[in-house]
Design a protein around this nucleic acid. Sequence first.
DNA 1: AGACTTTTTTCGGGTCTCGAAAAAATACTG
DNA 2: CAGTATTTTTTCGAGACCCGAAAAAAGTCT
Lengths: 413, 413
Amino acid sequence: MSAGMRHDDLRRRNRAMVIAAVRRAGQPSRTEIASATGLSHSTISAISADLISEGILAETKGSEHATARRGRPQVALSLNPKAGAVIVAVLSLSDLSAAIVDYSGVPVVEENRRLSTATISRDELVAELVAMLRRLTTGRSTGPLKPLRIVLAIQGISDAAARVMLWSPITPHRDIPFADMLEREFAIPTTVENDCNMMAVALRWRDPARYRDNFIAILLSHGIGMGLVLKGELFTGTRSSGGEFGHMIHQPSGALCRCGRRGCVEAYAGDYAIWRNAHRKSEYSTPEDGIGNADMVALAARARSGEGAEREAYRTAGTAIGYGLGSLFALIDPAPVAFVGGGAAAFDLLEPYIRTAIAQTAGGQHSDAISFDTVADELPLILQGCAMRALAFVDQEIFAVGLEALDAGKEVA
Amino acid sequence: MSAGMRHDDLRRRNRAMVIAAVRRAGQPSRTEIASATGLSHSTISAISADLISEGILAETKGSEHATARRGRPQVALSLNPKAGAVIVAVLSLSDLSAAIVDYSGVPVVEENRRLSTATISRDELVAELVAMLRRLTTGRSTGPLKPLRIVLAIQGISDAAARVMLWSPITPHRDIPFADMLEREFAIPTTVENDCNMMAVALRWRDPARYRDNFIAILLSHGIGMGLVLKGELFTGTRSSGGEFGHMIHQPSGALCRCGRRGCVEAYAGDYAIWRNAHRKSEYSTPEDGIGNADMVALAARARSGEGAEREAYRTAGTAIGYGLGSLFALIDPAPVAFVGGGAAAFDLLEPYIRTAIAQTAGGQHSDAISFDTVADELPLILQGCAMRALAFVDQEIFAVGLEALDAGKEVA
DNA sequence: AGACTTTTTTCGGGTCTCGAAAAAATACTG
DNA sequence: CAGTATTTTTTCGAGACCCGAAAAAAGTCT
């Protein structure tokens, strides 16, 4: 059961509310914060004075964003970029990216390099990651920024506590406790998140009007991934990190999936599945590994040029996605969907079949109300999602607590 | 965004915590409540004194449940049954049941009658319901109990606000605003809930050890329904009341479902589907309506007696349920499942096929960890779930607020 | 009967939020 | 250009709440 509330929890919550209001609104005045949070002006005044003296917020002078009105002008508050920083990293098939982002959400340093994750050893994989983060943190451009949180996004499944990568398609190695490893190396609290979940987080920040309380982000690439936000919160499974949309069953005993089972949605709609069907290979043939983005672009072009096996392969893929979404919508009701990644570039080929399939399902009742959107490039989205997630942790778990409480904690410890 | 916390919100939350602790534990002492909630003894003392003086809690003397230990004996607190009451009603195919339950959760009056919901008019349906509740509330046995909440459970879909029955298999009529109707009639706040959701709520109370944070209740009867609890909370869709497990797609373009679409799980595992297959009718033939429980019992007996179309029908049903669960588990990870209703009586026929199918799916990775359980009789479960849901509302929204706050509210109004 | 143990209440202190009033900062007005 | 109006922000006193320590209560044990 949830715990009772102490008196200091109240202050912590309200500090978190104020910080969150500033992060969302950008440069709100105290009055705007008061009306956004429902707290009184005096409380906002007291809390923001604390936060400013602790260097978390800052008064932004001379911004004059509003037209000069009668009365005392509002003083805009903003996040102090130098209050801290977060480290984000994304490990995907054959690519490693990382960045340091300041407290206001602006990237300070970034690095990106190719890495054949599928073939290197477990130790090398970890060593490469640690080395890149080490380079970033020791670079002079970081300046006096203190990293307060690391978020690592990986294709695949992590445990519910977001500490261990349980399984990933990008490497044969399993159960790598990245969070423990990085915490030991850098002494910074760390979580390991699913890449598609981070995409969903980023979409929420990029377009809050469209992606507010309920929506779905689907990654179409070699495999199929999903990030799901329900009632404003990231949906995670009971044991692991996220919903494996790609491994819902489309056809019992159907096509061979990369996961070794049969009939998964991915076995029809993953890049390898489309490629396999377009080349008239058996549905039961072993999934190919080295299909590049260029191959898929060429394949899509051939499909657009006219009927044939290629077109048919996209039809099969769209149908599988559509029925999968139909089953998902039966469970959660329809919601806006964003298709992200290489496959989104061929969305024109998929969409009609997706819509036709959804219309055959219970979830398709309000079929026309279902809005689709595409985002071609997934990496920036994932990085941004990691940053927002890491910053949310800093906001709520570190800065909302307050310096006095921290000092008191130190004395006790 | 969630609102900031006022000072009195704190007290309200902590009052709710205390009430919840008593409801869960039955007869806890103040000390037990303190350790359960994490609040200090002085706070518990103050809050429970308030609650007792308001007639919500009572000291239970002479219970002596614990063996006489050294020291001052604990004073057991309990819910005062006369603090209030709730009204619950269940409308299912050809049956209407209702009850008044006192504040401690004990039914005071119950009534049950057959009603051919499928054929009567919309007005008659509402009139029958109102009449039954009217009889219950005016009966002398109710005594001075004041009903504070009505919860109505119906097979089918209600809106997210739980006020309107959008669609139900038990009646051709749609969009019946039961909550508004009953509130106008009785002036008691009302919600309309999905029957399977209420089953899940009840299971949580009946066996908290097994059904704690994550579990699934599946109703096997004419149709297939589901109630889902995730992270300790009832899962509801974004627009409607619950997950329609029965209308996930098992076979694209497959057997004809009662909902008019093809290939739903229900079209293979609902009573009508099993009956249809057992009688070697076409999968595309119109679902029969009047299949009684006796028919299904007889059918199950024939299936047990040896191979044949009946056995095969259960195999098909079990396979559909298994693949459906596999897809569901892919999304939410495996969780304990309770099968409820008439179909649960034939669970021995279904289980091997369910397990075989699940093992073919990604969700079946930990197939042996998935525990199944059966509850034959759904009606008592649904009634109990309604009662607990209604009482939870009274606890949190009425009694946790406190009399002073209520009085103040009245003055303002 | 007195010592001991455990539960519950009481009391004083500290912290938090709120409303009202004051102070601050600027635009408008004649 | 000085005074007034307006809006934002801060200050101040009051009230509510929770906590820890101490006291009171209500038994058992010796």
